[in-house]
Computed example of a mutant assay.
Amino acid sequence: MSTSPDPAADGAAPHLDHRAFDAFGMREVSGDDIDAAIADAGDKLVCVFFWGVDCFNCEMAKKAMLANPEPVRALDLHWLHANVYAHPELGKRFGLHGIPVFMFFHKGKKLGRATGWHGQGQFAAAVGNARLKAGGKPLAG
């Protein structure tokens, strides 16, 4: 018998852990407000975490980020998140064929994406390439 709390007992949906959203200050967005939320970031690099309820790989990504949060915070991203199951128009608009996807924007321009969570190194490399692209520099090899 498990002594861990049942998420459904307090009205929360199962497999919907919001701790990563809170830990990294991720603002929830929908198709109606994503463009304004990206614009609100000003000069900061924006990362939109596209996820879905009951998405095993999305939950694993959140757990991995929470297990070692400091390198993620050190990337100094302006975080947004969107549940593409609740907002399928975002999946269509951004050409998502699977989740999780981390998409990078700067001043409204899409700079790239990281599909899935393949570890901190891969994610940091994707962020680095987005920063290079934002600065008009060649991408790293």
Rank of each mutant, 00 (worst) to 15 (best):
H78S: 15
A37W: 04
A125T: 12
R93I: 01
R113A: 15
P100V: 11
K63T: 14
A126T: 10
A86V: 02
L77D: 07
L90Q: 12
H97W: 04
V127K: 01
V48S: 08
D54I: 07
G121I: 08
K44R: 15
D33N: 15
F21W: 08
W51P: 00
G98C: 11
G95H: 08
A130I: 04
F123Y: 13
A124K: 03
P100G: 11
K107M: 06
L77S: 06
A9M: 02
M60N: 13
A114V: 00
H97K: 12
F102M: 12
L16F: 10
C55N: 08
Q122K: 11
K133M: 05
H18A: 14
H118C: 03
F123T: 10
N129Q: 05
K110D: 02
K63A: 15
E59N: 14
W51K: 04
A20H: 06
R93A: 11
A126D: 11
G112N: 02
F104I: 00
G31K: 02
F102G: 02
A125Y: 08
H87R: 07
R73Q: 14
H118K: 08
H18L: 15
R27V: 13
C58T: 13
A74E: 14
A114M: 10
A124P: 00
E59L: 15
L96D: 11
A23M: 03
G31T: 07
H106L: 00
A124W: 01
F102V: 02
G98S: 15
D10G: 01
